[in-house]
């Protein structure tokens, strides 16, 4: 089925790079490098030039910290979305928010996707997506409160839980009026999960793909990579790309990333190994 993300459509075998653009002073990886609006805009221009199909603009870091009001989140995100929309009409703009009011304003400013990393914490977010003509990303968090870390969360079967929750969320979005082809699911590595959970979700990602909903994975430099390899933030690219390979082989469609170029090469390579993408240019032995 064609994937429709707001103004944009993609074939059912297309893979998409969703580049992270933080309008935050304190996100774990970039530590405020794109906090200033012009720096964030430069990052958008960079990732667009690198071939990213999407940007994911967020105004609040995922980890606990100073509470950011709706007004402050809007101030960080909405005008910026409008500026990106005007300058990069071909780019899919996703906004990373769990708040319906922020989502609605983002859609009005030109957002194509609402990426709800917190699993439907605000039940009205689906209505904002439907009314705004946006796609929605339905994540699994195990029901945790936004901006909290997992603490002794356990599952009988983490993958079954992820499928049940994301599909239920997807069905709620469709019932609210979001078109079926605009609903994406995301197991949400590290969110409501310890490292063992995130590894299992990675290992069994094919079960999520089998639901028929396009799957987004957000693996980039996360703690499950760091803990698995005992690497600090800044030394997790190799582990991230290894996890990316496994998810690509399983058929994940959207990759939320810090490193666009490396991830694109990894996904293209695996997609070709899987027989879903021809090589770029093949002549060896065929002359």
């Amino acid at each position: 089925m064609t994937l429709r993300l707001g103004r944009h459509e993609f074939a059912d075998d297309a893979t998409l790079m969703m580049a992270i653009v933080n309008r935050t002073p304190d996100s774990f990886y970039d530590r405020g490098a794109t906090w200033a609006e012009d720096k964030a805009f430069e990052r958008v221009a960079l990732v667009a030039a690198q071939g990213a199909e999407m940007v994911d603009i967020g105004g609040i870091k995922a980890a606990p910290g100073v509470e950011i009001s709706e007004a402050e989140e809007k101030a960080r995100v909405i005008d910026f979305v409008a500026r990106v929309r005007e300058s990069f009409p071909d780019l899919v703009i996703s906004v990373d928010t769990w708040r319906a009011s922020v989502g609605a304003a983002a859609c009005a400013a030109g957002a194509d996707v609402l990426n709800d990393a917190w699993g439907g914490a605000d039940p009205e977010l689906v209505d904002a997506a439907a009314a705004g003509g946006a796609a929605i990303v339905c994540t699994h968090t195990g029901g945790v409160t936004p901006r909290t870390r997992p603490y002794r969360i356990e599952y009988d079967d983490v993958v079954a839980a992820a499928i049940a929750d994301t599909v239920a969320y997807a069905e709620r979005a469709i019932a609210a009026g979001v078109p079926r082809e605009s609903v994406v699911i995301d197991p949400a590595h590290d969110f409501g999960k310890n490292t063992f959970h995130s590894l299992e979700v990675t290992r069994r990602l094919g079960e999520m793909v089998a639901t028929g909903y396009p799957v987004l994975v957000s693996l980039s430099n996360k703690d499950f990579v760091g803990e698995t390899l005992d690497r600090p933030v800044g030394e997790r690219l190799v582990g991230t790309l290894a996890a990316t390979s496994v998810c690509a082989l399983a058929g994940a469609r959207i990759y939320r990333v810090h490193e666009v170029v490396e991830t694109r090469q990894t996904v293209d390579m695996v997609w070709s190994i899987a027989g879903r993408r021809p090589p770029r240019r093949a002549i060896r032995g065929l002359q």
């Binding site: 021809p278 090589p279 240019r281 093949a282 002549i283 032995g285 065929l286």
Partner: peptide, 16 residues
């Protein structure tokens, strides 16, 4: 008889 002409060996870009 270049096999690169065959459809089963087509890449995204055509070297021939």
């Amino acid at each position: 008889g270049a096999l690169a002409l065959l459809r089963e060996y087509a890449g995204l870009e055509d070297p021939v």
